[in-house]
Design a protein around this nucleic acid. Structure first.
Lengths: 208, 208
DNA sequence: TTTACCATGTAAAATGTTACATGATTAG
DNA sequence: CTAATCATGTAACATTTTACATGGTAAA
């Protein structure tokens, strides 16, 4: 992963403490689709970055509380620049609902769609929340949006909107019972159904 | 992650060897946005699944070559069913280019967009390839697409199409030099630029 | 005959999360 | 005064990738 670079990047915005870095990842990074970043990840990485000379620390021992403000060094800036120019891996998405839906027809033989519908509706709410968070972030008075960063914001926004449209479309399609392009040329789904029944019968049998 | 469930799910389609599972993940799973799955992940997991009684093995010792065909058991089917009903985490995407773009304005002060343009064009090609792979998969004679799986396919397709449109829009926007909604109310970008210059000057100084 | 594909597996390293421990400061 | 937030950190665990090791089989 790129925990190191994300931390460096956030420090390029503004010198910060470990605690602030986590908040920044979860507030500004949320709409960008970054995940979360745990302290167990942040503090050890800050130590490493410091040892590599990419960041510096300013410790403030006011009364008896230690806070450490980290800032990026010249070496850190160069590291960030060369990382940006490096080739990037194609994005990877871990989407459990989507994975489940691709196994759905083989696993659940029933026509009852209540579970699927509730899952889609839950997803719709979460996505709508993210979009709201996003719009609020975009339009508040403090957010910095650079020329290039704007494009990435625009991307995330259109992705979220596309997702919402898809959910709507899918929900109506389920409710009116459309059949669409479903196909099973090798009868794999029917076979799955039989294999499943077979194995469950054997199981019943052995339980007697 | 859900390596266990993905393997179980693939075995719900069809009994397979470890080698075939990997191919299936990379061929059918590619369009679904699953990442890759390494043998270092597959074989130990198959062993575990077997120990838990979720899958069985059929060893074939033709001549002197061992191949092991794994199949899902009744316990495995039940496990899959209950996994599908479990609540799913909101999707997580790791998109390095997007991350880079969100730091871009702070890190690269130059107006030269050739690097950005080439990165976007590379991304466009990769996404177009994925979409082509997808369409070919969807329209071939062997792919099984169940009723629910169809919806997930539809989702991925519209996501890829949205991305392509965004790239086109962004490239034209860059080329004609649009300014859009970029803003910097707290002068963070200007400050970054100064902090960067400052740190680089100190560095030059110390190198004398 | 040699290249590509089929096939199984392990050990070490990298990467990250969870859960815990600790305590200061601020707002209501 | 007490709840929320600010703040730092570690150790154990979980997960996965990388790199290696090995060899059979089919097609050109």
């Amino acid at each position: 992963m790129s925990v190191k670079q994300i931390i460096l990047g956030i420090l390029s915005w503004k010198a910060s403490t470990g605690y602030e870095i986590k908040n920044e990842v979860e507030y500004s990074g949320r709409q960008l689709g970054w995940g979360k970043m745990s302290y167990g990840s942040i503090y050890p990485t800050l130590k490493e970055l410091q040892q590599e000379g990419l960041i510096t620390v300013q410790e403030s021992n006011t009364t008896n509380r230690i806070t450490k403000v980290y800032d990026i060094t010249s070496k850190g800036w160069l590291e960030l620049e060369s990382w940006i120019e490096e080739p990037s891996a194609y994005p990877i998405t871990k989407d459990d609902l989507l994975i489940k839906m691709s196994f759905w027809d083989h696993v659940r033989s029933s026509d009852d769609d209540t579970i699927l519908i509730s899952k889609l509706e839950e997803r719709k709410n979460e996505t709508q929340n993210l979009l709201n968070h996003f719009l609020q972030w975009e339009n508040n008075e403090v957010s910095t949006i650079g020329r290039v960063a704007f494009f990435s914001m625009d991307y995330v926004k259109s992705k979220l909107e596309t997702e919402l449209k898809w959910i709507e479309k899918t929900l109506t399609s389920i409710k009116i019972g459309e059949n669409l392009k479903a196909k099973d040329p090798n009868n794999l789904i029917r076979k799955s159904s039989k294999r499943k029944q077979g194995s469950l019968e054997i199981n019943d049998w052995s339980e007697l």
